[in-house]
Amino acid sequence: MGNRNNDISEKTLNMLVDSVLNRHGVKLSRARISPREKQQLRRLINDLRRNVDALNRTQRS
């Protein structure tokens, strides 16, 4: 059930992002981000993920 819900929210968010990009007539370009920037962003996202997890843990405790 949890996985199914995750799947549904992933599809919904994909549709949301698509619709916003289409409305503005733009596409996200992978090529514009350098490998170094990608690495920095990956680190940043992982840090944010950890912070969100920590906050949720605090709320459950």
Partner: peptide
């Protein structure tokens, strides 16, 4: 944390869309 997440979203969009005005509009939307 909420502000940091919004900033990260804005960052990815602004890096991957050439037109900065459009990038701002997409982020806002």
């Amino acid at each position: 944390l909420q502000v940091a997440l919004q900033a990260a979203i804005a960052l990815i969009i602004s890096l991957s869309i050439a037109d900065s005005e459009r990038a701002d509009e997409v982020t806002q939307d």
